[in-house]
């Protein structure tokens, strides 16, 4: 590619070229502006409309009857989200970290390459596919929608997230640390558990936080597996509500008071998910400063 540009002294560019350059620069800034608009508008609307929904009832009551829907809350959704995401975290953290340890410390050759590729493939799977999978495998077989099924569907999504992110962190641990410990006669597995993993600790925490943030906001896979519930449920084998499910359901009713609850739920989701992402960033940038 050879650049064919007329050479002109500075300040005497032909008007056409200068105009094109200015138009292009303006276009780039317009793109940045356009990209910012939705973020600003979404935050403003979610905060200003969700704000009104927040009350003691909102956090402590189940939905009220159709006579006075504004007296109710979404307590069952908070309990359900805690139950589902809690179980999913419990399943996916050990699975993800062990996979990451295999890939970073032991994995060689073709099999490790295949595992890495499969983690990538699972990451690009549309989240509803995980829902359909568990719906058919667990919900239909057990004959009921359940919090457990929802946790399994989220595990399908969170396991590869943690595995890939934690692997990259483990690879950043300096090789000298491993060699030093091995030279002292410490067995490989103890080196990994007592030296490598603790060194990468904050980074692994970041990976977990990002996965939990993803799990909190997912709606489609939970919809097909947990279904939703108007009452507080703590039995993992029963249909269970969750905050995103409640937002989805309330938004589609024609009742204005329920729309308000939906905005309140959206605000809570936004705060939780953005809070986790920002905290994860802060932790990982501190970690990077420490390791370099």
């Amino acid at each position: 590619m050879i650049a064919t540009v007329e050479i002109a002294p500075m300040g005497r560019l032909r008007a056409g070229r200068r105009w094109k350059d200015r138009a292009f620069t303006a276009f780039l800034w317009a793109c940045a502006f356009l990209a910012m608009v939705p973020l600003v508008l979404i935050s403003v609307y979610v905060v200003s409309r969700g704000w009104h929904a927040l009350s003691v009832n909102f956090f402590t009551k189940e939905p009220a009857g159709p006579l006075d829907p504004s007296a109710g809350g979404i307590a069952q959704s908070f309990v359900g989200t805690g139950l589902i995401v809690g179980m999913a975290t419990l399943f996916s953290v050990p699975l993800g970290i062990l996979t990451a340890i295999y890939l970073a410390e032991y994995g060689r050759g073709r099999f490790a390459g295949a595992v890495r590729l499969i983690a990538e493939v699972l990451l690009s799977t549309p989240s509803i596919v995980a829902g359909v999978f568990i719906w058919s495998l667990v919900v239909v077989a057990m004959g009921t929608f359940s919090a457990l099924a929802a946790a399994l569907a989220l595990t399908v999504l969170m396991w590869p997230v943690i595995a890939r992110a934690a692997e990259e962190i483990l690879r950043l641990v300096p090789q000298e640390l491993r060699e030093g410990a091995l030279a002292l006669g410490v067995p490989r597995w103890r080196v990994i558990l007592r030296v490598v993993v603790p060194t990468a600790g904050a980074g692994i925490l970041t990976a977990i936080m990002l996965a939990v943030a993803r799990g909190l906001g997912e709606t489609a896979p939970i919809l097909l597996t947990a279904l939703g519930n108007d009452f507080i449920n703590t039995n993992p084998l029963q249909p269970t509500d969750a905050v995103p499910l409640r937002v989805f359901a309330d938004a589609r009713t024609p009742v204005a008071a329920l729309h308000e609850l939906a905005w309140g739920g959206a605000l809570m989701l936004l705060v939780a998910v953005l809070g986790l992402s920002i905290a994860a960033r802060a932790v990982s940038s501190r970690q990077q400063k420490r390791m370099t």
Binding site: A32, A35, M36, P38, L39, L41, I42, Y45, V46, A213, L216, G217, E218, T219, A220, P244, V247, F248, A251, H259, A262, W263, A266, L269, L270, V273, L274, S277, R281
Partner: peptide
């Protein structure tokens, strides 16, 4: 700041996009 604003956009749950899309 510009780069991290764009990343924040990626973290917003899809149901929040849906709610905003539906009512705004």
């Amino acid at each position: 700041p510009l780069a991290s604003f764009v990343d924040v956009l990626a973290a917003i749950p899809s149901v929040v996009y849906g709610l905003w899309g539906l009512f705004v």
